[in-house]
């Protein structure tokens, strides 16, 4: 299977986001670095996990953070951006375009027990 590049994936993911009434981070360079991040996770772990979360190499365990993660829509609704800021609300996107230097840290919604992988204990 030919692996897609961030440049090829960006428009595809943008259309996916727009169907959900949201969009991708308009800072394309930053957004593509995040896409590059989850593609690297795919190489390292075997699944496209969130580039900004620690993963354990167990697809079943990390299913909730395979991008787009289970928490994406709730984070975008509450904070305007998903945990890694790849998916954003249209309002958030407008602010970024207006040059607002937004650096919101999205609190981790993932249940804390998910941060204690059994095989590591």
């Amino acid at each position: 299977m030919v692996k897609k590049t961030p440049d090829e994936l960006y428009p595809i993911l943008k259309r996916f986001a727009e169907k959900k009434g949201i969009t991708l981070n308009p800072d394309e360079e930053f957004a593509k670095s995040l896409i590059e991040g989850f593609l690297k996770k795919d190489e390292m772990e075997g699944y496209r996990a969130c580039p900004c979360r620690l993963t354990v190499g167990d697809k079943e365990w990390d299913r909730d953070i395979i991008c787009p993660c289970d928490y994406m829509m709730d984070d975008v609704a509450e904070f305007g951006a998903c945990f890694c800021s790849l998916y954003v609300s249209n309002e958030y996107a407008d602010n970024v375009r207006d040059g607002d230097n937004i650096h919101v840290s999205i609190p981790e919604r993932r249940p804390i027990e998910k941060l204690f992988y059994p095989e590591d204990e």
């Binding site: 690297k40 580039p51 900004c52 890694c84």
Partner: peptide
């Protein structure tokens, strides 16, 4: 940090 994270890179 994480080598895959854009915020870490920034």
């Amino acid at each position: 940090a994480l080598s895959t994270c854009g915020h870490c890179r920034n």
